[in-house]
Write a protein that binds this DNA or RNA. Structure first.
Lengths: 138, 138
DNA sequence: CAGTATCCGCCGAGATACTG
DNA sequence: CAGTATCTCGGCGGATACTG
């Protein structure tokens, strides 16, 4: 790891490896990261709070994603050595700055998802259920 | 998501299924979508232009992702029935509105990726290569 | 409570070959 | 040139069992 060095993950060709948008999506593009940021949007929460708030998430993925965010310096983890252990998660300063761009995306989503759904329906009707659909939809 | 069937994938509980941020990430969170939007940022391009600009992408993924964007109404496809066929891709009006939030993310990325990398290094040194790393990094 | 450790299925994505 | 059609593999993410 560490890998500020040598290999940029690619096999031989530089496909916009310098593109920071790409880097950030590698980071938050997964299934759960932004949901966790959302759950920590306005305050801290403990592990089981998060499990309950996000609810579809497994312990494994919650732990794993939180570790990633902690490693990235976006989430802070505090262990309270009480009788049943208590662990608090909070957005760091850097993590809080992520909320603005995320909010922008969210607003785009709210504003346009209706149109997108309509467009999809029209498209599917025009070419009735083509075989190649990646089921990005539904 | 939601898989082919009626069931919303969840066993009984709604894990922020109404969260539009989630919906939008299902859409642009994949490997290539935003790179294509980036390649169409300030104008149209033909299929092979896109292949060359993005370069790491396979024909399959380029076609597939373009189809998705077209279906979503974010990209317009124009076929010029010339001798060797020529196909132009352009962002639609809706697609162009996506550039702003994407730009916001990109700027966040530029501003913070350095800190993130540093945080990762520190984290990895503190717990030297823990077994659970999802290799989100690199 | 807040995790770790395993096993496994699914599908995103690449490689390759063929077509209008 | 601009695609389609298959085969295949890696690894993300779920399920389950165990622990400090």
């Amino acid at each position: 790891m560490v890998t500020t060095s040598t290999e940029p993950v690619l096999h031989g060709s530089p496909y916009s490896a310098d593109c920071p948008t790409r880097r950030i999506l590698d980071r938050i593009g997964d299934r759960w990261t932004v949901l966790i940021v959302g759950a920590l949007w306005d305050g801290s929460a403990r592990f089981s709070d998060l499990r309950r708030r996000i609810e579809g998430i497994s312990q494994k993925m919650l732990t794993q994603t939180l570790r990633g965010l902690e490693r990235d310096g976006l989430v802070h983890r505090t262990v309270h050595p009480e009788v049943p252990v208590r662990v608090e998660y909070t957005l760091t300063e850097a993590g809080r700055t992520l909320r603005e761009p995320l909010r922008a995306l969210q607003e785009w989503s709210i504003a346009h998802l209706g149109d997108v759904a309509a467009s999809q329906e029209a498209y599917d009707q025009a070419n009735q259920l083509p075989p190649g659909s990646t089921d990005r939809d539904k």
